[in-house]
Nucleic acid binder design. Sequence first.
DNA 1: TGTAGTGTTTAGATTCGTCTAAAAAAAATA
DNA 2: TATTTTTTTTAGACGAATCTAAACACTACA
Lengths: 219, 219
Amino acid sequence: MFSFVEENYLKAIYHLSDHGRKSVSTNSLAEEMQTTAASVSDMVAKLSKKKAVDYQKYKGVNVSGKGKEVALRVIRKHRLWEVFLVDKLKFHWDEVHEIAEQLEHIKSPLLISRLDEFLDFPKHDPHGDPIPDENGIFSTVKKVALTELELNTPAQVVAVNDSSSAFLKYLDKVGVSIGTKLKVEDTNEFDGSLDIIINQQKALTISQTAAQNILVANI
Amino acid sequence: MFSFVEENYLKAIYHLSDHGRKSVSTNSLAEEMQTTAASVSDMVAKLSKKKAVDYQKYKGVNVSGKGKEVALRVIRKHRLWEVFLVDKLKFHWDEVHEIAEQLEHIKSPLLISRLDEFLDFPKHDPHGDPIPDENGIFSTVKKVALTELELNTPAQVVAVNDSSSAFLKYLDKVGVSIGTKLKVEDTNEFDGSLDIIINQQKALTISQTAAQNILVANI
DNA sequence: TGTAGTGTTTAGATTCGTCTAAAAAAAATA
DNA sequence: TATTTTTTTTAGACGAATCTAAACACTACA
């Protein structure tokens, strides 16, 4: 139905359009796909003919219903494989993207449902991004920055806003990762820093800047 | 270095040449690859220019040292993924080939070494075929028919001689599959049947005919 | 509101893997 | 050995995805 390359275009359009909310320019898509505007024009016309995107010349492009379905299926596979690589094969969360880019194109619905089960139906990938279910539905846990979390409310880290390697290294050092359970014990008004308890044991103070970049959900 | 398609050709040549022992005709390769002789001629010329095969016009083709390396790497990946699908994702051994055909082309040496470790360094795939190591070396376990196994010697099922569905169904029913650990407790001289212990617990008597078709290796 | 500048599309070419049809070489047979 | 049959290769073309260069369409500002 859709080639490897077409799937990648649909995924990119879906991302750049902010989940289908705004149309995507040829140039931005060209940059995302590491190719030329001319190639993008060609491919978008092709996807339009296949009814996978809505497209009018010079007016930008967006995924259609069908295109969104394809994009979500690929995203689901990508994120499930990332969970596999980190949880089962002990990869670090910042080394899995490239491999998942390849694995996401393996065609076998049964494989994916078995993998989902094997991984115990994860709702988030190792970066905290939500994994759509087989119908393309994201689980609707509300994510808030750690700075917004109420005092003494248990929560779980589900994502980060800053994925720079400096920040990820810092999180590693203090023992925070996706899935870490924590609560905020106190806030220090003079600099906005937070006193938190990690996994009901380790006490730690983190800066306001760090806390703004850690997203948590209630548990 | 080598495309998806080139890898498949090298694998097919390696197989048809009986592990590089005899040269492969254009027509047989065309049949194996489900394509035309003309396409094979083109591709073989291309692989020859890349020094992956030894080829002289009208004289057939065979893998070169480099080509054999590529083929063995692909075969290793294919068989490791098959083990993963059967052991971890609970696929039946006759449903994994198609999916492994796709997975075998994922490029990441680290992924494969991690997978190998995760699967506990299997030496055989679910069909009993040996898995080459990272240097392309097959483990040289001696396979013997179960009828030849010494009494009370622990061994592991590595292959079957008869892959008729009747025999496979029988094996399923009695709980014997590739990888099953067993030993022979006693032989019954009057009909050649064997009393065996499966996985150090289940006792079972099997006919001489069945035992001749089960290949085991010492462990 | 006309025009310079930016963004986008079209035209034409290239590489990869494939095809059909035809030519050439090897093998089989008389 | 000469001729027929089979196998293999070559020639030329095609679709997919890409590219560069050139034409075209929008936009922004003088």
